[in-house]
C-alpha cells in the first residue's frame, strides 16, 4: 500500500468512526452564515417530523377561509435542468419554514419568536400565499386565493407521513393584512 492510499484509508476510517458520534453544536452568528465551510453532507438521512406551514385568510366581510397548506409543488419541465429559479426559490422559502421551526425549538426562555427574522419572513410568506402569490406562474397554495384579504393567521405544524402525528408547533395571532 503506497502512502497516498494509506492516508485515504486512514481518513475514511476516521470519518466512519465519527458518523455515530453526536457532536456538540457550535453556534454563532457568523458560523450560521458560513456553515457552507463545514458541510455535514447528511441529506434526507431519516424520517423525522417535518414542519409544514398552514394559513387561513379573512375577507373584508369577516369570513374566514379553511386552513391551507403552503408547500412547494410545481410542474416539472425538461429545461429546469439548466434554469429553475422558481423551484429553487420555492425550496428556499420552504427552508425558511424549517429554520423557523428550529428557531422555535431553540428559543430561550422569555424570548419572543415574533422578533426573529424567520418569523417575520414566514408571516409575510403566509400573507402572500393566501392572497394568491405564485412561485413563477404556479400558485403557492392549491386552493383559490382569498380575495379582499383583511387579516390572516398561520400555523407551523410538525407532520409525520400518513397521519401518524400532526402537532401544532406555533399558531400566530390574527394579523392584519398590509401592503
Amino acid at each position: 500500500m503506497d502512502f497516498t492510499t494509506a492516508l485515504i484509508v486512514a481518513y475514511f476510517a476516521l470519518l466512519a468512526l465519527t458518523l455515530r458520534k453526536r457532536w456538540g453544536v457550535i453556534e454563532g452568528p457568523w458560523l450560521f452564515f458560513f456553515r457552507a465551510f463545514f458541510p455535514n453532507w447528511k441529506f434526507y438521512h431519516g424520517i423525522n417530523p417535518a414542519p409544514r406551514l398552514y394559513v387561513r385568510g379573512q375577507t373584508e366581510a369577516g369570513t374566514w377561509s379553511d386552513w391551507r397548506l403552503i408547500y412547494p409543488r410545481l410542474p416539472r419541465k425538461g429545461w429546469h435542468l439548466v434554469h429553475n429559479p422558481a423551484v429553487n426559490l420555492a425550496l428556499a422559502h420552504q427552508n425558511l419554514v424549517d429554520h423557523l421551526a428550529n428557531d422555535i425549538n431553540d428559543l430561550p426562555d422569555g424570548a419572543d419568536i415574533r422578533e426573529r427574522v424567520t418569523y417575520q419572513l414566514v408571516s409575510r410568506l403566509a400573507q402572500q400565499a393566501v392572497a394568491g402569490a405564485c412561485w413563477g406562474d404556479h400558485p403557492m397554495i392549491a386552493q383559490a386565493p382569498v380575495r379582499q384579504l383583511s387579516a390572516f393567521q398561520f400555523e407551523v405544524r410538525m407532520v409525520l407521513p400518513e397521519g401518524q402525528r400532526n402537532e401544532l408547533m406555533l399558531q400566530s395571532p390574527v394579523i392584519r393584512a398590509w401592503n
Partner: peptide, 18 residues
C-alpha cells in the same frame, strides 16, 4: 442566471429584512 431572475420572482427574502 437564476440569481439574476430571482429578484423579479421574489417579494419575500428582501435585503432590508435579512
Amino acid at each position: 442566471l437564476e440569481y439574476l431572475r430571482v429578484p423579479s420572482l421574489d417579494r419575500l427574502t428582501l435585503w432590508p429584512s435579512l
